[in-house]
Computed example of a mutant assay.
Amino acid sequence: MCTIVPISLSIGANRIVPTVSIPYPLGNPELSPAEEKHLRRDLVLKAFKALTTKVDGQTVF
Rank of each mutant, 00 (worst) to 15 (best):
K46G: 08
A34T: 10
E36K: 01
V55M: 07
T3R: 05
A50N: 00
P33T: 01
P18S: 12
I22R: 03
R41W: 01
P6V: 10
L43H: 03
P23K: 03
T59A: 06
E36Q: 07
L43P: 08
I22G: 03
L26H: 04
L31C: 14
E36H: 02
K49T: 05
H38P: 00
K46C: 12
S10F: 13
K49M: 13
A13P: 05
P29D: 06
Y24I: 13
P25K: 02
T19G: 09
V17K: 09
P6R: 07
V5I: 10
A34C: 04
I16H: 15
K49E: 15
T59H: 06
E35P: 05
K46V: 00
A34W: 15
T52N: 01
I4S: 09
L39E: 03
C2T: 15
A47H: 03
E30Y: 04
Y24C: 11
T3I: 13
G12Y: 05
K54N: 10
P29M: 11
V60D: 05
L31P: 08
C2L: 11
T3Q: 09
D56I: 09
R40D: 00
T59K: 06
V17T: 12
L9I: 15
F48H: 15
K54D: 07
R15Y: 06
P29I: 01
S10N: 14
P29S: 06
V44K: 08
K37T: 11
P18D: 11
F61R: 05
F48V: 15
L51F: 04
P29T: 04
D56N: 14
L39T: 04
I4K: 04
S10M: 12
L39P: 04
R15E: 02
L26K: 01
K54Q: 03
L51C: 08
F48M: 14
P18T: 05
S32M: 03
P25A: 10
F61A: 05
M1E: 13
T53P: 01
V55S: 06
